[in-house]
Amino acid sequence: MIKEITLISGAVFGILAIVLGAFGAHALKKTFTEEQLSSFETGVKYQMYHAILLLVIGLNFPLVNTIEHFMVFFVIAGVILFSFSIYGLCISSSRGKKIKILGPITPLGGLSLIIGWILMLVVFLDYGFYLGA
């Protein structure tokens, strides 16, 4: 089940990154400041990077132990908290009604992504680098 969640999340995040990137480049260009566009683009980039990471994890890791499950959880949660809080901040700010509660959520998402990467390192060290063999 975790493998399916990982692969589906990676695919959905990838699709949404493309859609949101195009939306930002075209529709939002007229209403966003340069800073808002740059922030929105950062959210899209991080979302796509981690969509690819989830696909790599889902296709190459056995995902049979708790640490691997937490690794996936932290990456998925990190994308949602980091990228989507940036989208919310940019869109609400461009409309003059900035949702300030999203501000502290962005760094929590970044921390969650970092924890996911640290857990991947732990998995690599635990497996002795023989994944997929």
Rank of each mutant, 00 (worst) to 15 (best):
A22H: 13
L121H: 00
A27Q: 13
E68H: 00
L16I: 15
L28W: 07
S93L: 05
S92H: 06
M71W: 02
R95Q: 13
I99S: 11
W117N: 05
I57L: 12
L111E: 01
L81H: 07
G78S: 02
G128Q: 07
V64H: 11
L89T: 06
F124A: 14
A51F: 00
F13W: 03
C90T: 12
I115L: 10
K100C: 02
A22Y: 13
Q36M: 13
L63Y: 04
I52A: 11
F70S: 09
L37G: 12
L63I: 10
S9V: 01
L119N: 11
G88D: 00
E34D: 10
K30E: 15
I101T: 09
L108A: 09
I8V: 15
V44E: 01
I67D: 09
S112E: 03
T66N: 14
L7M: 10
M120W: 00
N65R: 12
I91E: 10
G128H: 02
I115C: 04
I86T: 04
A17R: 04
S93V: 08
I15T: 14
L59M: 11
G110E: 05
L59G: 04
P62Q: 10
E68F: 02
F23D: 00
M48I: 15
K30T: 14
F32D: 05
L63K: 01
V123R: 05
A22K: 09
V12H: 02
G109N: 04
F13V: 11
K29S: 10
I114T: 13
L108C: 12
G24C: 07
A51Y: 00
G14A: 09
T106D: 07
F74D: 01
F23L: 14
F70W: 12
C90R: 07
S9Q: 04
C90F: 04
I76P: 07
A25M: 12
D126I: 13
W117G: 08
G109I: 03
A11D: 02
